[in-house]
Amino acid sequence: MIREKKVRGKTRKFRNFRNNIEEWSQTLPVPPDLSPSYLGCRSYSFDDIYEDFGDYSKFSKSQKREFLQMIINFVKALHDLKTEKEKEYRIICFLPIPDLYRVLVMVGYTQAGLESFYAGLNHNGEFNKEFSPSTNVQYLQNEWGLHIPDGLEVKGFEGNDESFERDSIWFIGNVN
């Protein structure tokens, strides 16, 4: 029997993550190019958390829930910072459930930027073939016990082939 190596410093790493989220929640990022045709975005990747812990399979469901709720609250905090000047900004988090292998928060500075982001997920005019739109819009609330704050929209996609059968992808924020 092979023992899995214990993850050391989990509490400290979670605390550092929480502190980073609080710091990032203070101001909206500014686009480097102010032209209306700018398609760029700013993203906050949480790959370092994934690397620190090896993978999220070592987390309990309650720890994953806490992590996801912090990300959702971060999106809401950025959403609440928008002024009339930033009304075009689209703030979205990307949550691959249940493995959380590539969690990120994206701030798209224009509607065209959001459309460009979604275009990158399409293959020959269709969303990634392995996934189809989810009909269970309450999945995150019912199955994971997450709170989706008012003003944020949810859009989900479920795996529909054998290798992605139990996986789903969720977007939360200004998804339209």
Rank of each mutant, 00 (worst) to 15 (best):
V154E: 07
P29E: 07
L68D: 01
Y56S: 13
R12F: 08
N176Y: 13
K61W: 10
Y89L: 00
R42H: 10
G120A: 06
L95T: 00
P32L: 08
E126M: 07
H79L: 02
E143R: 06
I91A: 04
D161Q: 11
L39K: 10
K87R: 02
V7H: 04
G156A: 04
D161Y: 07
K64V: 10
T110K: 00
M106S: 00
N142G: 04
L28Q: 03
F67K: 05
G159W: 09
P36C: 01
K10Q: 14
D33Q: 05
G54F: 11
E115P: 00
H79R: 05
I49S: 15
K76Q: 08
H123C: 11
K10H: 12
N128H: 07
G125A: 03
F171D: 04
Y109R: 03
Y118R: 01
S25M: 00
L95N: 00
F131W: 02
I169D: 05
W170L: 07
E143A: 14
G120Q: 05
Q138I: 12
N160K: 10
L140K: 03
F67G: 06
F117A: 13
R18A: 14
N122K: 14
R15K: 15
L114P: 01
G151V: 11
P31W: 08
S60P: 09
F74V: 11
G151Q: 05
G125F: 01
I148K: 04
P149W: 12
E84W: 13
R166C: 11
Y50F: 10
F94Y: 13
E66N: 14
A119G: 05
Q26C: 14
L104D: 09
F117C: 11
